[in-house]
C-alpha cells in the first residue's frame, strides 16, 4: 500500500514537468503491481560508480547493468557504460580502477541516461544499497531533464537485512558478505558491471530462499518507488 501511495505522489508531483522530456515514457507506463510474480517480472540490476559519496561534490562515472527475465540473468543484456566526466575521476579511481584516460571518449551523461530510460520501461530496478545510487541518478536526471526518473525498485541489501534480522543475527551487509552466505564467491574485479552482475546473482539466491515452494511476489521483496 505504501508503495502505491509513494508512486502516486511521485507521479502527481512530476508528470506535468515530464511532458516532452526524455523521462516522459516512464510517467506514462502503468504501475507495476506489488502482487506481480517474481518469475514473470523483468528486472534491470543496476550499479553506479561515482567519484565520491557526496552527491553535491561527486559525479557519476559509469553505469553497469544486466537484465533478469524468467528468473534468469540474461548474460547478453549486460552493459557497461562509461560516462564522460567534466572533472577527473579524483580519488575514487583508486578504488574503481577507472583512470581518467579510459573515461575520455566515454558517452555523455545525458545519452547514458536516455539509454537507461529505454531499458527500464515496464521493468523493476534492482540495487544493492539503493539509496545512494538513486540519489545520484535523480540528481543527474534533474540536471539534464529537469525532472526525476520514475521507477519501481528493490534493494538486495534491504532484503538481506530483513532476512538476517528475522534470524536474530547481525551480520555484514556488504555485497561480498551477503553473497558469501549463499556460497557465491566474489571476483576481485570491481566495476559497475561486475557489481551489477554480482547483485543480480545475489537476488536470484535470495529469491530462491524466500520462495519456499510458493510463488514469490514482488511484495515479498519490499518493492518501493524511487523518490
Amino acid at each position: 500500500m505504501l508503495y502505491k501511495l509513494q508512486y502516486q505522489i511521485q507521479h502527481w508531483r512530476y508528470h506535468k514537468k515530464a511532458v516532452g522530456a526524455p523521462v516522459q515514457p516512464l510517467y506514462e507506463q502503468p504501475l507495476i503491481k506489488a502482487s506481480q510474480a517474481f518469475a514473470s517480472t523483468r528486472f534491470l540490476v543496476l550499479d553506479c560508480e561515482m567519484s565520491g559519496l557526496d552527491v553535491k561534490k561527486s559525479q557519476l562515472l559509469s553505469l553497469g547493468w544486466v537484465m533478469i527475465e524468467h528468473g534468469r540473468i540474461v548474460n547478453a543484456s549486460a552493459r557497461h557504460q562509461l560516462i564522460h566526466a567534466d572533472r577527473g575521476a579524483g580519488d575514487s579511481s583508486r578504488i574503481h580502477g577507472l583512470l581518467d584516460s579510459s573515461l575520455a571518449g566515454a558517452t555523455s551523461l545525458a545519452s547514458v541516461l536516455m539509454l537507461l530510460i529505454k531499458h527500464i520501461q515496464g521493468v523493476v530496478l534492482v540495487f544493492h544499497h539503493a539509496s545512494l545510487d538513486i540519489r545520484f541518478l535523480q540528481k543527474a536526471a534533474i540536471e539534464n531533464f529537469r525532472c526525476p526518473l520514475l521507477f519501481s525498485y528493490i534493494d538486495t541489501m534491504h532484503i538481506e537485512k530483513r532476512r538476517v534480522h528475522l534470524q536474530g543475527k547481525t551480520m555484514g551487509l556488504r555485497l561480498s558478505q551477503c553473497r558469501e552466505r549463499y556460497g557465491l564467491t566474489s571476483s576481485p574485479q570491481h566495476n559497475a558491471l561486475a557489481d551489477a552482475q554480482a547483485t543480480a546473482e545475489l537476488l536470484l539466491a535470495q529469491a530462491s530462499y524466500l520462495g519456499k515452494g510458493r510463488e514469490l511476489k514482488l511484495s515479498d521483496l519490499s518493492l518501493r518507488c524511487a523518490k
Binding site: R72, I73, N75, A76, E201
Partner: peptide, 25 residues
C-alpha cells in the same frame, strides 16, 4: 556462447527442473 548464457540459482535441497518451466523461455 556467453551471449546465450542464462544464469540461474537453486538453493540446496531443491530439485533442478531441466525442462524449461516457463513456456516462453
Amino acid at each position: 556462447a556467453s551471449a546465450n548464457i542464462y544464469v540461474a540459482f537453486s538453493k540446496s535441497g531443491s530439485e533442478l527442473k531441466l525442462e524449461s518451466t516457463a513456456p516462453e523461455s
